[in-house]
Nucleic acid binder design. Structure first.
Length: 751
DNA sequence: TATGTAACCATTTTT
DNA sequence: TGGTTACATA
């Protein structure tokens, strides 16, 4: 049996070996929190607690998987339930479907699907969706659900017009969602929470089942999640929560920092343990992080202590433009790696928003620096993959109207909007799903001739495919869908090169499916769909790969890297534009920055640039106020081409004709100067053996002469974009396209 | 009904 | 900047 505590500090040991009763662990960044939780699970098992009586909740699927592995290593063969709140929700809803009067084959709708449905609800409610965008209404509904509010109760929260409107749409949306046998993300928390609240038998059953509950990242739980936790801890009050109020960064998603601040109020007998010793970062990094977070007024004061060696000072790097920033960060990383100071895997670049990864991507490609952008779902969110997945969903859940509408005319089958409007009307009047309504085409006089035949063909297609769903593994089913639906044919016969690309993506999807089933033969199509929808950004991150990780600050939570760059630390970006007016929001932005700083183990670079290209225009940027809040010991280095007094920049400054701030706060100022970027540095690299380079002149058999404008991806997914003299820009798969290199790129100076 | 073009618009963070 | 939508046209 493992010795689980001898290598722990006294407070860590205390946390691990606390047996029964509520426990609050306030764990500062880098204080070995994950270790404590895993050890605690193992320790409980060692005390004779049955594995099935333990429930551990993590923030991401990845964290759950890791924790499973670690617990497995300590106590082999255990069956502890470790998952995210959302996965827990799905499993409970499926397991207790009949008691909750639900159909267990429900579809989980992602944001895009949800927005489609909300759009329908907005239209059904008779509001034009110009002012009420699905996004805004969706956010309101999501918030309501996270607070466990029904449409009626939500309507009671405020008399203002928006709330009243959103409440009406919420009601309609919810009905449509149930009719389609669909769940949105919030339902996965809302329904279990409500079930626990309203069904005492079920509640006590589950309370007894999960005698010990552990929750990680507790500072980011919302009301629904807290309700679940509380309701599982009434008869067996062994609720252990771990978190750090300074790292609460999901308020916009409904998480409530009060859950952790008020834990002692809800559980007055809770034991409170503070872990404040940091094992991750250098003192320099911690001093910077502390100085920053101390500007928050709504917080308990807390020190960050470490025994680690002093290390490098924290550095602020200033560049002329966002392009420079991306290029020079790429170059610096490359140089450091070539000099043997660290490997690519040691380095991470954090951004406040996903839009900022674009520039980084091209700079990294250009300089041949291997990288991965950690944005998990991107691949499955491509249209072609979503189409195929929609077919699968429709097979699993015949009531899924959203998926029905998505694929009914994809590929085109001559079923247009008018026909579908008729079908939808009939379905609604008779309380049928669209799929069921197909049985009554003869009763819908408005649909005739060709349209009837087309719909019947579609009905048969789905019917036939459905007969196969339980008989074959997901990957084979996808092949059948692809062939029988005509989707493959559509792409194959297309003249558009991008369509060959799309076909290749679907092949990737098939590979992903077979990988999924090969891990566990019992996995079904439904499991595959569920896994994809619930996968978070970080879940597809491969930390083994020898490359730089690029991700948002939010995605970085819980991770650590020897070297960290945070880019675009500018007013309006970090802190974000929308947070500048409310202290509460500004403090959350500061926590976002704090999370970023505390990921760094040895080296930390905070970057900003004087000019930033933002949605098409060049803006004059002001360094983040958070940079001013750092201690004076932080080194500032100007990497502009003229040591801070850049005539090009000055020219821009003079060129400012409108000193107004676009009506909002004074952050990024609009510039009406030449659009060309003033200081671009080109460095020649050849990143792949194919020898293509940005700037090369090439000849395409069909399109003729063109210039390579960008290269991305690797191997079979490597793409080459070319701007042709005639016909604009086209993208090809590098390995497939037949190109003749006409002229090597002009070698230009690398200033 | 399908497709192409032009205006338009919206922009944080994600399970 | 790029993606979406509305409208006109075939």
């Amino acid at each position: 049996m493992h010795d689980l505590t001898s290598d722990l500090t006294w407070s860590q040991q205390e946390a691990v070996t606390h047996f029964e009763g509520p426990l609050l662990i306030l764990a500062a960044a880098g204080s070995g929190k994950t270790r404590v939780i895993t050890r605690r699970v193992a320790w409980l098992l060692q005390q004779g607690v049955r594995p099935s009586n333990i429930l551990a909740i993590t923030f991401t699927n990845k964290a759950a998987k890791e924790m499973k592995n670690r617990v497995e290593a300590l106590v082999p063969g255990n069956k502890v339930w470790i998952s995210t709140f959302h996965s827990l929700g799905v499993r409970l809803l499926r397991e207790y479907a009949h008691r909750l009067e639900l159909d267990r084959n429900f579809t989980i709708y992602d944001m895009e699907d949800r927005n489609r449905l909300i759009k329908q609800a907005i239209e059904a409610a008779g509001f034009d969706n110009v002012k009420f965008t699905p996004d805004r209404i969706g956010a309101a509904i999501s918030k309501a659900k996270n607070q466990l509010l029904t449409p009626e109760r939500y309507a009671g929260t405020s008399a203002d017009f928006f709330t009243q409107t959103a409440a009406k749409i919420y009601a309609i949306y919810q009905k449509k969602l149930r009719d389609a046998n669909g769940m949105d993300f919030d339902d996965l928390l809302y329904l279990p929470a409500m079930a626990l609240r309203l069904l005492p038998d079920l509640r006590s059953e589950l309370d007894a089942r999960f005698k010990f509950v552990l929750i990680d990242e507790y500072q980011d739980t919302n009301a629904a999640q807290y309700e679940i936790a509380k309701k599982l801890s009434i008869d067996h009050r062994n609720l252990c929560v771990v978190g750090d109020p300074d790292q609460s960064i999901y308020k916009w998603r409904g998480s409530d920092i009060r859950n952790i601040l008020d834990f002692e109020r809800d559980f007055p007998d809770a034991k409170v343990i503070t872990l404040d010793k940091n094992y991750r970062s250098t003192p320099a990094i911690l001093r910077a992080a502390s100085a920053l977070i101390e500007h928050n007024t709504q917080r308990k004061k807390k020190a960050l202590l470490t025994d680690n060696p002093e290390g490098e000072p924290v550095r602020v790097l200033t560049f002329d433009t966002g392009l420079d920033e991306a290029e020079m960060v790429a170059k610096r990383i490359k140089e450091a790696v070539l000099a043997g100071r660290h490997t690519y895997r040691d380095v991470a670049v954090f951004v406040r928003m996903n839009a900022l990864t674009r520039t980084l991507e091209s700079a990294f490609v250009k300089h041949g620096v291997p990288f991965q952008i950690v944005k998990g779902l991107a691949f499955f969110e491509r249209k072609e993959n979503k189409d195929i997945l929609a077919y699968l969903r429709l097979l699993v859940n015949p009531q899924d109207n959203i998926s029905f509408l998505r694929v009914v005319n994809e590929p085109t089958r001559g079923i247009g909007k008018v026909t579908l409007d008729h079908l939808q009307n009939y379905a609604e009047q008779h309380e049928l799903s669209l799929n069921q309504a197909l049985d009554y085409l003869h009763r819908i006089p408005a649909i005739k001739g060709k349209a009837v035949a087309a719909l019947k063909d579609f009905q048969k297609l789905i019917h036939d495919l459905r007969a196969l769903t339980d008989e074959m593994p997901p990957e084979e089913l996808i092949r059948e869908v692809l062939d029988r639906s005509g989707y493959r044919e559509m792409l194959k016969s297309s003249a558009d090169d991008e369509d060959q690309d799309r076909l290749a993506n679907i092949e990737e999807l098939i590979t992903a499916a077979s990988q999924f089933t090969s891990e566990d033969g019992t996995r079904t199509v439904r499991d595959f769909l569920e896994q994809i929808t619930l996968a978070g950004d970080i879940d597809n991150w491969d930390e083994q790969q020898q490359c730089v990780s690029i991700m948002t600050l939010h995605a970085s939570k819980g991770l650590e890297f020897p070297v960290v760059y945070i880019i675009a630390m500018e007013q309006g970006i970090l802190p974000g534009e929308r947070s500048l007016h409310r202290d509460e929001d500004l403090e959350e932005e500061r926590r976002v920055a704090f999370v970023g700083l505390t990921r760094a183990m040895k080296e930390l670079y905070l970057c900003n640039s004087r000019l930033r290209d933002f949605r098409g225009q060049t803006l004059y940027a002001i360094p983040s106020m958070f940079i001013q809040e750092l201690p004076p010991e932080v080194q500032t280095i100007d990497l502009g081409s003229h040591g801070g007094r850049n005539p090009t920049i000055d020219a821009y400054r003079v060129g400012v004709t409108e000193p107004s701030f676009d009506g909002s706060a004074g952050n990024h100022r609009s510039i009406s100067a030449p659009k060309t970027s003033p200081a671009t540095h080109q460095v020649s690299t050849s990143t792949e053996p194919d020898g293509y380079e940005v700037g090369q002149i090439v000849q395409h058999p069909q399109y003729g002469i063109g210039t390579v404008t960008s290269l991305s991806g690797h191997g079979a997914l490597r793409k080459i974009k070319i701007r042709f003299a005639v016909g604009g820009e086209k993208t090809f798969i590098a390995s497939k396209v037949q190109l003749k290199v006409v002229k090597k790129r002009n070698s230009s100076d690398a200033s």
